[in-house]
């Protein structure tokens, strides 16, 4: 077990190094930081002096090492646009994105898994076909269109829900949460739905496909032949086996939800990392973009590791091989 985790950690370090390299390349190759910082009236000598002071004339590898070292120390540099420390900017934005992503994921799981099981058990039923058709529409329409449609219906026509921002938030330590006020929840519903619909369809179809496969397997046929009650057959025997491969995908999805909430955040003006990233692109705020990349990669690595551990917890075949 220890070996397994260590192996994963070492792999993760390499992934993070690769991402840090990409982020660093942004600084090097997307525009000249000095001309970003200075005006047209700065003389060539001053620019050269600034380059020297900032260490931009050092060898590439030295600069990269310094960049990684600073990152490790928690020094993410300063934004070109706002002159604030990037670490601070990201830290204030992370809670919004994480809450949005988690709620979206929960929606997709709470609806997607039962719907997947249902459609797998009654593949030809009218309800199943209806669910499959409807969700197919959900997948075919781009996220931003769904968002705009939801805003139009619930925000503009019915006027039930707010269409932008986080609503009422509560400050808990450094974490700004909208999960503790009804106002915050009202603001969260539409963006979370928008973000969750696509994931929901994917989860549902995946669960359905896996479940149908499992239902055809010998051990389910054997359990049926032994007269195991159907409830246990479906939810104890079949569902657990269905979830083994599904968990991997859900993990990747969660990473994806966090990373690609950009569109949803921009439609709903949700003050999360995605929105920050969009603003940074508009102003060529390279430090923020670089750090965003690194933070998202870190999330992916973290989630994947959690998934791997979960995998071992569910499947005794992996667990025992580790012990033996």
């Amino acid at each position: 077990m220890a070996y397994f985790i260590l192996k994963r950690l070492i792999q993760s370090v390499f992934v993070m190094l690769a991402v840090a390299f990409l982020a660093f390349s942004l600084f090097r190759f997307v525009g000249d930081p000095v001309s970003q910082m200075t005006g047209v009236e700065t003389s060539e000598q001053d620019r050269e002096r600034l380059r020297d002071e900032l260490g931009l004339n050092d060898a590439f590898i030295v600069q990269f090492a310094r960049f990684t070292g600073d990152m490790l120390k928690g020094d993410f540099g300063y934004s070109y646009r706002t002159r604030q420390p990037v670490a601070e900017m990201i830290a204030t934005r992370i809670p919004a994105t994480l809450e949005l992503g988690t709620v979206a994921l929960l929606i997709s799981l709470i609806v997607g898994i039962p719907a997947g099981v249902y459609t797998a058990l009654r593949p030809r039923g009218f309800v199943s076909q209806t669910i499959l058709m409807t969700t197919l529409v959900g997948v075919s329409i781009p996220t931003f269109v769904i968002g705009i449609m939801l805003i139009f219906l619930f925000g503009v026509q019915l006027g039930w829900l707010p269409t932008f921002g986080r609503g009422g938030t509560v400050q808990i330590g450094g974490w700004t949460s909208s999960l503790f006020t009804s106002d915050g929840w009202r603001a969260l519903i539409l963006p979370a739905l928008t973000l969750g619909v696509y994931q929901l369809t994917l989860t549902m179809r995946l669960v359905r496909a896996e479940m149908m496969e499992v239902m055809r397997s010998d051990y389910i046929r054997f359990a049926t032949a032994r007269g195991i009650p159907f409830r246990s057959l479906y939810f104890r025997h079949a569902l657990a086996n269905t979830m083994v491969p599904v968990i991997t995908i859900i993990g990747l999805q969660f990473g994806g939800v966090i990373a690609f909430s950009i569109v949803t955040e921009s439609v709903f003006q949700w003050p999360g990392m995605g929105l920050l990233f969009l603003e940074s692109i508009r102003f060529v705020d390279i430090p923020v973009m670089g750090v965003y990349l690194v933070v998202i990669a870190f999330f992916f690595v973290l989630v994947n590791m959690a998934v791997d551990l979960l995998y071992v917890a569910i499947d005794p075949r992996l667990r025992v091989r580790e012990d033996a």
Binding site: D218, Y219, A225, F230, H237, N241, R317
Partner: peptide
């Protein structure tokens, strides 16, 4: 379904796949 197991049971070909692995 009640009769299955109680009065008639079945043994399948491949013991590798006929038991729930989890």
């Amino acid at each position: 379904h009640r009769l299955r197991g109680e009065r008639i049971s079945m043994i399948f070909q491949d013991p590798q796949t006929s038991l729930n692995p989890l």
